[in-house]
Design a protein around this nucleic acid. Structure first.
Lengths: 328, 328
DNA sequence: GCCATTTCCGCAAAGGTTTGCTGTGGAAAT
DNA sequence: ATTTCCACAGCAAACCTTTGCGGAAATGGC
């Protein structure tokens, strides 16, 4: 069976294509009688507009691009799910691409977005991206780009982040409410904006408390975190371990379990997470919530804004809240 | 800045649009000299073909559709990641939609796929889908549909599954190698094809061992699994709990932890999983691996086949292997 | 130097929509 | 009865690309 088109409808009804087109969009120029005839026939023929033709003509697609380093990640997946959901509700479809943290693929993906004429893209930068020039073309074509999570430092772009500073501050405050004297803080890839922000905020918060020992380490993956943690714990058992992310947390948890340590008895734990992992364990691990879902919803809302009216580039923040498990 | 088009290039070079088009695709009709001039200019002008125009003309898009109940799921996310990766390598982009297990949304999503002229779709059926008629239109339009994971029972469709029967058999064999006398087997939504298959296979395997007590329960979510598990354990402590999926496993683990039980000492655990969750714990939980990644890769390969040559509908299986943790 | 190829390129249509403009018929206004 | 206006619908161009066909120039063979 071949597709039904405006042309086909127009031929059957003996009217022109333009009349059919207008009737279908309730254009006032078309009489009610004609309109109803058209709509009726369109329904029975199951007419579905050819998005390619529409987009070609209107230069305005109902397609959004979304790029993350990898889809299978505790945080991104909830972000993606949220964006997709809201997008769908607004008639948009989402094209999802992974960069694999490779700047080359990242720029190729941008090209794919352009070729498919997306009307906006969400980007979480690859951790290895130094050169932002591949994004220039997007700006030239006036395709809104909204960075999220790992964002560039430039101020002239749209970005939406978790309240990274605040969440680290929150963590610090929580720690300071307890008599912990030695802290091991594990962070992720130091190249990421979120790492920098969280680390700086945490350091800053302990500036006024020189008597507390704050040891900071980095790890680029769960495996690395596990190794680092093992190494650190062999030297000295801190009162509390603070994890910047789920990735780090996973490594730490493995170490702790392998060493037969019990939290909160032997050691306290605090992490930043969306909650999935921390809630798997018993006692649940106390975490500062960074919700991919909230971020996704906010991101989509902002994107809608950007697409409708030219908005000034801004940095939006999604708040962080504390979930009290039983790990400290 | 406006986009570069074939027309623009042709005007600058003073040649016709068709020549430019052919030159860009190395058509033998075009002289080397002209071709190089064109390609050179196209590069400096950063020409990017308008996918909409191309698709409109050729009726052959480089876009694939992928629908899952929800993206944020331990299994789907790896499947999606794998499909996306291979798709990208082959020049395809993937449009991802969620059904939220709502048949209505499912059929709307199919419509979206059609409108965007995808050249193939991967579908994991929503658990509530009874009526498959919304897929008819896809067949009529000759858009290949490849079902995965939760698939329809019809035999006339393309489907790709994990070796559900085999993985349950594997589980049964493993259990039988131990002296376990009472088994609690927890399954997911009984409406799902994977549930049915796994359950049938497990039951079947124990048919020949009537002296072993096999208790089967169902749960539609982690929370439900947790409740059911609590309830069951209060009545009687089995030697081993078998979990059909990560979802179930999560509930079971919570119960076990909350009850202060230790595995494998107090109770043994066995699950079917892609490994992410089982490896988080210590000892790691023994599981039959069902890799979303493998399934994704196989699915994409099959899709490529379907799109290139008309393939007969088949049911493909991706094998299951055992990962030995320390939970039994 | 003439005919037959070959080489290279352009014309034009097609794909499905959208939209500014034009045109028609009839009713209302004068 | 003539003009004015409005409601309604069609024409045609445009969006950008692909491709069958035809044609001009250049090449080759004799």
């Amino acid at each position: 069976m071949t597709n039904t088109t405006l042309k086909k409808i127009s031929e059957i009804l003996g009217i022109s294509i333009s009349t059919v087109s207008r009737a279908l969009k309730h254009h006032p120029d078309i009489s009610v009688k004609t309109r109803e005839k058209v709509i009726e026939l369109a329904r029975t023929l199951d007419y579905e507009p050819n998005a390619n033709a529409v987009q070609l003509r209107t230069k305005n697609s109902k397609l959004l691009g979304l790029m993350v380093p990898t889809i299978s990640n505790y945080f991104y997946e909830t972000f993606i799910a949220a964006v997709e959901e809201d997008a769908r509700k607004n008639g948009y479809a989402v094209m999802i691409l992974q960069s694999g943290n490779d700047p080359l693929i990242e720029s190729e993906n941008l090209k794919l977005f352009r070729q498919n004429r997306v009307s906006g893209v969400f980007v979480c930068l690859s951790s290895n991206t130094k050169d932002m020039s591949s994004f220039e073309k997007m700006y030239e074509l006036e395709i809104p780009v909204l960075f999220f999570d790992n964002v560039p430092q430039d101020s002239g772009v749209h970005k939406i982040c978790l309240a990274d500073e605040k969440s680290a501050q929150l963590a610090a405050e929580l720690i300071l409410q307890h008599p912990y004297q030695s802290i091991l803080a594990l962070f992720g890839n130091p190249a990421l904006s979120i790492t920098k922000k969280r680390e700086a905020a945490l350091k800053n918060a302990f500036q006024a408390h020189p008597h507390i020992s704050l040891l900071i380490e980095h790890a680029n993956s769960s495996e690395e975190a596990k190794l680092v943690c093992h190494e650190m714990l062999n030297k000295h058992l801190p009162d509390i371990i603070f994890c910047m992310s789920d990735e780090v947390l996973i490594g730490v948890l493995k170490t702790i379990q392998e060493k037969g340590l019990r939290y909160p008895d032997n050691i306290a734990l605090l992490t930043i997470s969306n909650g999935t992992i921390p809630r798997l364990f018993h006692p649940q691990i106390t975490y500062i919530e960074t919700s991919g879902e909230k971020l996704g919803k906010a991101a989509f809302a902002h994107m809608l804004n950007c697409m409708q009216t030219k908005t000034e580039p801004t940095e939006l923040l999604v708040d962080a809240v504390l979930f009290n498990g039983g790990s400290l």
